[in-house]
Amino acid sequence: MNYAGMNAGSLTFTASLVVVALGGPSVLDTFQVLQLSAYSSLALGVVGLAFVWGILGILSLGHAAFFGIGAYAYAILSIAQGESTFAVAAAILAPSVLAVCLGYFLFYGRVGDVYLSVITLCVSLILFSFMNSTADVSYTLLSVPLGGFNGISAVPPLNWPGFVGDFLTPEATFSLCFLLLAAVYLALQFLRGTRLGRIMASVRENERRCELLGYDPRWLKLVGFVISAAIAGLAGALFTANTGYVGPTVFDLGQSSQFILWAIAGGMGTLSGAIIASFMLQFLASFIGTSQLFNTSLVFGTVIIFFVYALPNGIVPSLQGLLRKLSRLARRQRRRPEVIGDSIKSTP
């Protein structure tokens, strides 16, 4: 059932993330903890995109803009204040505000799908160019130099709310990142099952029909767009807290296309798929970057082609399809003739 947000699968997936969050630190070494924390924050970024694209049908090619603004907001505020709580809040709020403004013009101005994708991409690239040109020492925000191409370095990690300098251990950060990922996943999955979520899905299926039923697709899209931007901002903040660095490349084409690749690989319309794909492809990128057996770009190109040709539906839907086929095969013996519109004689 495509509208059942909370089902056995999504609950199991949430539970797995929680298990990793709580059990991970006791079985992983420090490096793995750090690496997975960074991966999980990028996974969080792609969930927002998978939601807005897979559920609402809005392809935002500039998802990195929101991720990047969150990343910069966290870096600047955590350095300026020496405290990360407000920085995280601002990292969620700032991209949301941009999403409200941008979304208002895009959706209420009835900009077409293709133009919407291009405009969001442009916004991201404008931010990329702008941040690149802030190398001069006179570019500061809250007396933190923006740093241009070199970015902002030595960004402090998360601290316990209200306790300046009392930083979370890598293990605690790891647990927090995975719990947040689980919480956001569960919340979005829950939203999909609600009345609002189901109506949002109808916007993707047929926007005209949706508005002829009396729903305002502009408003629904705006809400979804802002939700995805807020999640991307949080992801940006966590990523920066994990790696201690932010630079203009968070806004570049590579960052946006990475999110899109993960969403495609995971499968349109599934949130868990995007998360799983993001982890798998990050591990792959990291692995081939150290193995030196193949050219990294070559491997990635092959992977993209593989997903487009062999698994056009993405990882999770393909697996689900396989399972369905198997179960159908098993049921074939006791199958009754299919009846549709049973009181009406069907068209011969």
Partner: peptide
């Protein structure tokens, strides 16, 4: 016919009535 092609029959009618 302008219906929600990717959604179930039930969901189509549900969406119409849910407003």
């Amino acid at each position: 016919p302008s219906v929600f092609n990717g959604l179930s029959v039930h969901e189509n009618v549900w969406l119409a009535a849910a407003r």
